[in-house]
């Protein structure tokens, strides 16, 4: 049996070259590779400020002193590690599809976690609904442990995704970079939960994961469909006309989500489980400005 996540070595090596590219504003933690606005010890010049008693003489910019006859000190930006929250929808609706949606999401998190750990960032995992939790950890030495954790995750039943996101926002006030991986198949919508996360100052990346069968079912005929998560039943007769209407409906629904994300400056990536993870991580995420 292949060991999770089963990435080939070349791909892993490519991952080590990638770095996250968060927008300014999120809280850092510990030393890392991401420049922050506050003063620090990096080589990245930030600003001048007037010399005050106690400042290191070595920081005085003598050229400025020569021109202005007043001592100024050079201020440099700090470099910190960032905390990445991976929120994964582990409801029963994700336990479906070929390739499997939840497994695909977990492999994607493994890849992103690998990237994060390579860049001295913190990784945190939380399943929705609650049930699996991986605390903030950093460093490449914890990657095997993280992969092992991910490999044991199973679907957790039904949940209201919007409500769970609101609860998560209440419990995690520190602004972080959140990767939300879900199929968003929630009849009551998830927009409320996302708004609550944004209100807390989090930066969100919305990875909308669907199986190809969900946007274009290949089945034809009379069926009694049962909702995987909620058990709701509906009798349908799927012919070309009906499938066209269904396709249009799914498209409208996706567009609604996309427009919502655009309006709230949330990177939205629609991911089909049939697309290779390598392509997603190495091409689409950098193109979306999430990785560099």
């Amino acid at each position: 049996m292949e060991k999770f996540p089963g990435f080939p070595d070349p791909f892993l090596q490519r991952l080590t070259t990638l770095r996250f590219k968060p927008r300014p504003g999120i809280a850092g933690k510990g030393a890392g590779e991401h420049l922050v606005r506050k003063g620090g010890a990096s080589v990245e010049f930030s600003d001048f400020r007037t010399y005050t008693w106690g400042d290191d003489y070595r920081l005085i910019d003598w050229n400025s002193y020569a021109r202005l006859d007043r001592p100024f000190v050079k201020v440099y930006r700090d470099e910190e590690g960032i905390v990445l929250h991976f929120l994964v929808d582990c409801s029963d609706s994700m336990d479906w599809g070929d390739p499997h949606k939840l497994q695909y999401a977990l492999k994607l998190i493994a890849a992103l976690g690998y990237v994060a750990s390579s860049g001295y960032n913190w990784v945190k995992f939380q399943s929705i609904p609650g049930g699996y939790f991986y605390p903030e950890r950093r460093g490449r030495q914890q990657i095997p442990q993280f992969f092992q954790f991910l490999s044991k995750i199973k679907p957790l039943g039904k949940c209201h995704l919007g409500e769970e996101l609101k609860r998560y926002a209440e419990l995690n006030p520190r602004p972080s970079l959140i990767f939300l991986l879900t199929d968003a198949l929630e009849p009551t919508g998830i927009e409320g939960g996302i708004r609550r996360l944004l209100a807390r100052g989090h930066q969100l990346v919305f990875l909308h994961i669907l199986a190809p069968e969900e946007i274009q079912p290949q089945i034809r005929g009379d069926f009694e469909l049962e909702d995987k998560e909620w058990g709701t039943r509906v009798e349908v007769t799927l012919d070309e006309v009906a499938l066209q209407i269904l396709k249009k409906t799914v498209e409208n629904w996706r567009n609604t989500l996309r427009v919502f994300c655009l309006a709230h400056q949330i990177p939205y990536l629609f991911v089909l489980t049939s697309s290779p993870i390598e392509e997603l991580v190495l091409k689409r995420l950098p193109l979306a400005g999430i990785l560099k």
């Binding site: 479906w96 009694e224 909702d227 039943r233 509906v234 269904l246």
Partner: peptide, 19 residues
């Protein structure tokens, strides 16, 4: 009718209303 489990049915319900 053949019974099938699907990840969601609410989009089918929407599509039915549309139909």
């Amino acid at each position: 009718r053949e019974k099938r489990v699907f990840s969601q049915v609410f989009l089918f319900l929407r599509a039915r209303r549309e139909a």
